[in-house]
């Protein structure tokens, strides 16, 4: 066993973890990843790289993770089951581990009809829960999903996502339980705007004892404008932006929109931090990565080495 990655170390040592999301470019430009990485340096414990998010083609998560790793980050490789079957997924898990990319986040992925290739064939050979189980079996039992033995096991830290705001609400904690029993050790949630609902979900999570089996990081997204708030509320499936926040964003003059978004963001962080069982935050500043340092500093979270 080699030493655990930074994210795992922070979480297992009881620290309040801060992770941030980095969207790769729509081109073969490594500099844009380095630039985004530059904003985050010293402010986060790990950086997630999305996997063709919203089914729009971008630089691969694996390549972007490697660039970030070379910059000294502990990257989180997001893997959706939309575009790859179990053969490709397992192959990428081995590849990631070989490159020293330790954190793997397993998710379903947005349906391709949302993206820029709606005519693409989707895969969905396994689902996200099955991917978690497959990754755990590879690491702990040294076996592929097909049963064959693995020569050198991948040393990975497995995570999953959960959306407390999707329906049916009462199944959201039990579904997380499934993912955790499949092998997820950290959880990054959908962006939290409706803190009351998130707190109710966390209560169900605690009732099932899940906060003791996995580290739960609350998703945080700073809003830039009332337009963005409205868009997320109305057009992004599974997103819950309460009316009062949309109104609050709209109530200030245009030049103060970002300030107001930041204020809401910091209040949200303060409130989710106070909820028992929340082990960290995951900042998803969509195409606004440069704001992450202000969020971390504003929230009074320690600066990362």
């Amino acid at each position: 066993m080699t030493a655990p990655g930074n994210l795992e170390r922070v979480l297992t040592s009881g620290g309040f973890a801060v992770t941030a999301e980095c969207g790769p470019p729509r081109g073969a430009d490594p500099e844009s990843i380095r630039k985004k990485g530059g904003y985050l340096k010293g402010f986060v414990d790990a950086v997630n790289v999305t996997d063709n998010q919203t089914a729009v083609v971008r630089m691969s998560s694996m390549a972007s993770c490697l660039i970030l790793k070379e910059m000294g980050f502990d990257p989180v490789l997001q893997m959706t089951v939309r575009d790859r079957n179990r053969i490709a997924l397992q192959s990428d898990i081995l590849g990631a581990a070989a490159l020293g990319i330790r954190n793997i986040l397993c998710l379903s992925g947005d349906h391709q009809s949302f993206g820029d290739h709606p005519g693409a064939k989707n895969v969905y050979d396994v689902d996200s829960t099955q991917l978690i189980d497959m990754a755990r079996t590879m690491r702990d039992e040294g076996r592929f999903s097909g049963g064959a033995e693995i020569t050198v096991r991948p040393e990975i830290f497995i995570g999953c996502v959960e959306n407390p705001f999707a329906d049916p609400f009462e199944i959201r904690a039990p579904r997380l339980a499934k993912k955790i029993s499949a092998g997820a050790r950290f959880v990054q949630t959908q962006c939290v705007f409706n803190v009351e609902k998130f707190a109710r979900w966390m209560e169900m999570v605690r009732d099932l004892g899940l906060h003791e089996k996995a580290y739960i990081l609350a998703g945080i997204t700073p809003m830039k404008s009332p337009g963005m708030a409205r868009y997320m509320k109305n057009s992004v499936p599974g997103m819950d932006v309460p009316d009062h926040l949309v109104e609050r964003m709209a109530s200030v003059p245009k030049e103060h929109h970002r300030e107001e978004g930041m204020a809401i963001c910091l209040e949200t962080i303060e409130r989710v931090r106070a909820i028992k069982g929340v082990a960290g935050i995951h900042i998803m500043a969509i195409e606004w990565e440069e704001i992450v340092p202000d969020v971390v500093k504003g929230a009074g979270l320690r600066t990362r080495p």
């Binding site: 379903s108 689902d127 996200s128 996502v161 999707a166 499936p237």
Partner: peptide, 11 residues
């Protein structure tokens, strides 16, 4: 998404 352990986060 032919999910066997659903529902996904978009429901």
């Amino acid at each position: 998404k032919s999910i066997m352990n659903g529902p996904c986060g978009g429901s």
